[in-house]
Amino acid sequence: MEILMILTVGVLVSVSTYLLLTKSLLRVVLGIVLLSHAAHLLFLTMAGLKEGAPPLLGEEAASYADPLPQALILTAIVIGFGVTAFLLVLSYRTYKEHKTDDLEKLRGSADE
């Protein structure tokens, strides 16, 4: 299971790297989204996957999943959600103002 998860993370990171290197605003945003998913999945995997164990229900429980990474990932997901929403609006405004979504044309010169 861990190997499958790590492979998924690897695929996500490579796809997001590809998207981040493209020239379109929207693809860059999608790249960031996928990278955040990869980071969250990695966190879940690194903390250790357990089958068939519920979260901590009481002190007498024989086996339980570690609740901490789940709480942390939830926080990170919410933050990622907010940043993504902001990025989408920002890229839309940039597109509206500059009439282009090509990052090559959004480079700007060194002396202006």
Binding site: L20, L25, V28, V29, I32, L35, S36, A38, A39, H40, L42, F43, M46, A47, G48, L68, P69, L72, A76, I79, V83, F86, L87, L90, S91, R93, T94, E97, H98, L106, G108, E112
Partner: peptide
């Protein structure tokens, strides 16, 4: 116009860094 163009890059790079922060924390936790 200038602000929109440059802050898009700033936001993308900062967020990229934050994702590496999560990855680093994950490795440290493991």
């Amino acid at each position: 116009k200038y602000q929109l163009r440059e802050s898009f890059k700033y936001v993308v790079i900062s967020t990229f860094g934050s994702m590496f922060f999560v990855i680093a924390v994950a490795l440290l936790y493991s």
